[in-house]
Design a protein around this nucleic acid. Structure first.
Lengths: 322, 322
DNA sequence: TTGTAAGCGTTATCAT
DNA sequence: ATGATAACGCTTACAA
């Protein structure tokens, strides 16, 4: 017994496929009597509409594509919130996972080929021209990543690290270094915030090469020199750094203070208890969906960027210098 | 300029849609000359095949659906490996995320409607009858979860906790408790392993109600009583427990030893440094894909379950009792 | 209110 | 080797 089709339901209900289609989608038209018969027949046959066929026949798919970094717990938080928020707006979510071995472009292709109506790129660092080209095909919203030429929602990254740095300076630190996030606009922004705070305090900034992952943070531990405090690109790298410091017998925050960025679940663990910069996930998501819906409804053509305020969360990894 | 279709490419290349289709899919038939013209035309028009249409016309979709718990870093590891391994076998992956607010059944629906050829359920705890019913529609493989009536790949969970418990007993602990994973077959298995080890040692087992998340583990901290060692359902709950203990001023492992399960990235952090039971992710994934492919090729009808050996990883959270 | 039929963009069959 | 043309399963005017 092959998967039942619309025609099978129509036959069983004794009406046309058109009526069945209308009933199943809750469209007005069919009478109460046919409604009942159709519903009963569909139920009895275990009918499930074929999305591929539906997509083909319809203009809209009702699906949103999300590209995430599988490894990021911060992205996992965003996805969890998106799952909820998009369902409330009647959209279904398709997740395109990217990993070191499968870059954003490939994930995007799968999503586009699956007819997603819009794309939400989490933490993208793609070059502006690629994003703009993509945006030509389908509305693109960069979430928590510097949007080069496309719609975007993000917290003020520069201000975030600036405040984190100022927090360390206020504690009395003078030799504060920054472990950056490698290439990418967000990394540059966060680095800029650090530099701004240091310069404003009349101190010389020192930036170490880092990255997005634990390993990147850990690698930077060796180059800290005499620094008494560190601001790190994100929580993951900060945890890596913390990790390396602990292994090396360095006490945190007694010897070195560390501040991260994201306020990921990781940072909240009592073991880690990381001072960090919080991004308001529900607000990020709500704004992103607003942008998507606005574009989809054709209300707006010009590019828009929403910048939310970061919030410094002081925890146990920062204290006065030794 | 609407999205170019196959017909547009055909027109530009001066041949039929059939030829274009063959060329684009690399099927033999068309001559070298038409090949070149078609490829050039497609490239020039920026043509991308429409998956929905392709799915409709084809029997197979080449897509595998994966249902994961967004919050689980262990699942993230599995997905990362799956991304690679399935691509190597020519399959594309569609991720259906489940969260507290969106259960497995809903994720499965989306995946099936998207025409996935087979489903990989990560850490499912669904009732056997539902899985079997699902398996009637599309091949289902339960990965790292007790498969009730469907194909499955998992490590020997019972043996895992049994070995962890034996490790604690060998260290000299007598009062060892287990924080279980709530309902579900895997939780029951792991609990059984603990009970077996305790019973074999002539000790009375004591099981505390737990769950899959950090909060569940943390909640169990209050009920430890005089126990000097704990085996926990998984690493996440173990980290939550660790967390609560640290906050309460209990030293680990000096006062209490803790062992987890999964060997998730979390466990490997120096801050956590959790003794745990490792599941061989690449092997889990490779076997799961083997099962899927075998079913898809119609080679096999009977149900098969692959059980891999767990591996105890002793780290810093376990030591002799105080 | 209900049914008929023309797409939607590919793939696959079957002539040519 | 190539080109019509019929599926594929659903949506949606348009008729009845």
């Amino acid at each position: 017994m092959p998967r039942p089709r619309l025609a099978d339901v129509a036959a069983a209900a004794g009406c046309s496929t058109a009526s069945v289609s209308l009933v199943l989608r809750g469209e007005p038209g069919p009478s109460e009597a046919t409604r009942d018969r159709v519903l009963a027949a569909a139920e009895q046959l275990g009918y499930r509409p074929d999305r591929a066929a539906s997509l083909l026949a319809r203009r809209r798919s009702g699906m949103l594509g999300v590209v995430t970094d599988v490894r990021s717990t911060f992205h996992a938080e965003l996805v969890e919130e998106l799952l909820d928020a998009s369902a409330r707006r009647g959209f279904d979510l398709l997740i395109g996972a990217r990993s070191p071995a499968r870059d954003e472009e490939r994930a995007v292709e799968t999503l586009i080929d699956s007819r997603c109506e819009a794309l939400l790129l989490l933490g993208t660092s793609g070059p502006a021209e690629r994003l703009v080209a993509l945006d030509g095909q389908v509305p693109v919203v960069a979430v928590s990543g510097r949007a080069g030429g496309v719609d975007g929602v993000r917290v003020d990254d520069e201000r975030g690290t600036r405040e984190a740095t100022e927090h360390l300076l206020a504690l009395g630190h003078r030799d504060v270094v920054h472990v950056d996030g490698g290439a990418g606009e967000i990394a540059a922004d966060r680095c800029r915030g650090y530099v701004a705070a240091m310069t404003a305090a009349g101190l010389a900034p020192r930036v170490l090469r880092g990255g997005h992952g634990e390993a990147d943070g850990a690698a930077a531990a060796a180059d800290l020199g005499g620094a008494t405090a560190v601001t790190v690109f994100n929580d993951r790298a900060a945890v890596g750094l913390l990790d390396a410091l602990v292994r090396a017998g360095v006490r945190v925050p007694a010897d070195v203070s560390v501040a991260g960025f994201d306020d990921s679940p990781l940072a909240r663990l009592a073991h880690v208890d990381l001072t960090t910069v919080s991004q308001d996930v529900p607000a990020l998501v709500a704004n992103a969906l607003d942008l998507v819906v606005a574009r989809l409804d054709g209300v707006r053509a010009e590019r828009r960027e929403v910048v939310l305020a970061p919030r410094l969360v002081v925890r146990g990894t920062t204290s006065a210098p030794p």
